[in-house]
């Protein structure tokens, strides 16, 4: 395919709490604006609720909460990145996502041990794109079930419906 052929891979770039992340576009099913999120009682804290995406009911995972940042209100730039990893479809709520870029495989380095914040273990690699440091996420870790189900405490039971302004 495209990425294998010319030695580069395509990514969706998104912003979260001032940091730039990238996910492989191959794993992204689609991008959506957030209209309505229905809270699910007794769901883990980082699970904002459920949304419909292409007729499927998928969880909306708030990456801010997942990575330990504070929750912010949903606005026009907030995006739901619907990813497909394995058999699962999960929507990731991010601050904004506006770019689709190709990164040369050679531009990607393995994560530096020194750079390991809260999201450190979800990082697959680090790339420099146009003088920007981009953290490439390991999505299967991000949506790791056991971690979310056990590690997360449900902070919201029947949380407020998220509504777009």
């Amino acid at each position: 395919m495209l990425e294998e052929q010319n030695g580069s891979k395509t990514f969706i770039i998104f912003e979260l709490a001032g940091t730039t992340y990238a996910v492989r576009s191959r794993l992204v099913q689609q991008m959506e604006m957030i209209e309505e999120i229905t809270p699910v009682p007794n769901a883990p804290a980082s699970v904002e609720g459920v949304v419909f995406s292409r007729g499927r009911v998928i969880p909306a995972l708030n990456l801010r909460v997942r990575f330990g940042f504070e929750r912010i209100p949903i606005d026009l730039r907030t995006r739901l990145i619907v990813i497909e990893v394995g058999e699962r479809n999960v929507g990731l709520i991010v601050d904004s996502a506006r770019e689709f870029i190709s990164i040369e495989a050679s531009a990607i380095q393995p994560p530096n041990e020194a750079i390991s914040g809260l999201s450190g273990k979800y990082i697959e690699g680090i790339a420099t794109v146009d003088n920007r440091i981009v953290l490439i996420l390991d999505l299967s870790e991000v949506i790791n079930l056991a971690e979310i189900l056990i590690g997360d405490q449900p902070a919201h039971t029947g949380a407020q419906p998220a509504k777009q302004g």
């Binding site: 969706i12 191959r26 991008m31 689709f100």
Partner: peptide, 13 residues
């Protein structure tokens, strides 16, 4: 932007 992103994703596929 969203549509073009999605288009890019599809195009990459």
């Amino acid at each position: 932007n969203l549509l073009s992103l999605n288009a890019s994703i599809e195009a990459a596929r």
